[in-house]
C-alpha cells in the first residue's frame, strides 16, 4: 500500500514536472464538431448549384455522409444498394441526408457537378443533396477522416453520432448483413427521444482525400 502511494506521488510529481516543460496539445476549437455539442453550421453548394446551410434544417434530423465513389468501402454500400435504401427510407421519415465530397480536385473521389449528377442517376442515389466541399473546410470542421464517415444531428442541431457506418470494419459486402448499423441505431434512438447508446465510434474506410 505504501509503495502504491509512493508510486502515485512520484507519478503525480513527474506529470506535474512534465506539464511544466512540455506544452499539451489541444486540437479542439469552437468550430470543431463534438458529440453532445451543437453541430458546426456550414453552407455548401450542391451539384445543381443550390446552396444548403445546416441551420435551414433545424427541427429535422440530419445525416452527413462523407462520400468518395472510388473508395471500396463506399462501393461496398452502394453496390449492395444499402446506402440508397437508407437514404430513401430516412427521406420518407423526414430525415435530411446530405452526402459530402471533400476530395480535392485531382484526388480520388473528386467529381465535377455533372459527374456527381451522373453518379446520382446511375447509382439511384437518394440523398437530399450531394454537397461539394472543396477545399475540405467542412470536412476538417467535422474531422471527417474516412469515406464513409457518418454524422447524425438531432432536431435541435446537436451532434448525436460521429463515427463508422456499422460495426464490421470490412470491405466485403457480405459483411453488411449481421453488422450493427450505428447510423440506424442513432437515428432510431434520437427519433424516439432516447439517448444514443453508441455516440462515437472509430470510422473505417478510405482516408478523405483533402
Amino acid at each position: 500500500m505504501k509503495r502504491i502511494a509512493l508510486f502515485t506521488a512520484l507519478l503525480g510529481l513527474a506529470l506535474w514536472a512534465w506539464n511544466g516543460t512540455i506544452a499539451t496539445e489541444s486540437a479542439s476549437t469552437d468550430t470543431q464538431a463534438q458529440v453532445g455539442q451543437p453541430a458546426p453550421i456550414f453552407t455548401l453548394m450542391d451539384s445543381n448549384g443550390n446552396s444548403h446551410s445546416l441551420d435551414d434544417f433545424l427541427g429535422q434530423h440530419v445525416v452527413l455522409e462523407w462520400l468518395n465513389h472510388d473508395c471500396p468501402f463506399v462501393r461496398k454500400f452502394y453496390n449492395a444498394g444499402e446506402m440508397q435504401r437508407l437514404q430513401e427510407y430516412y427521406a420518407e421519415q423526414g430525415v435530411v441526408w446530405l452526402s459530402i465530397i471533400s476530395s480535392r480536385e485531382g484526388e480520388q473521389g473528386y467529381q465535377t457537378p455533372d459527374e456527381i449528377n451522373a453518379s446520382i442517376e446511375e447509382k439511384n442515389m437518394r440523398p437530399a443533396a450531394v454537397l461539394i466541399d472543396e477545399p475540405g473546410e467542412v470536412g476538417r470542421m467535422y474531422n471527417a477522416r474516412t469515406t464513409p464517415h457518418m454524422f447524425v444531428i438531432n432536431t435541435e442541431g446537436v451532434l448525436v453520432y460521429d463515427g463508422a457506418i456499422d460495426s464490421n470494419p470490412s470491405a466485403n459486402p457480405a459483411d453488411i448483413e449481421g453488422a450493427e448499423n450505428y447510423v440506424v441505431a442513432a437515428l432510431s434512438a434520437s427519433m424516439n427521444g432516447e439517448e444514443v447508446a453508441t455516440p462515437t465510434t472509430r470510422p473505417y474506410g478510405c482516408s478523405v482525400k483533402y
Binding site: C71, P72, F73, Q108, S170, A171, N172, C206, K209
Partner: peptide
Amino acid sequence: LEYLVCEKVCLPAF
C-alpha cells in the same frame, strides 16, 4: 484471407 492494401488509394483483397 481478407486484407486491405493502401498506397494513396486502398484496395481490398480476398
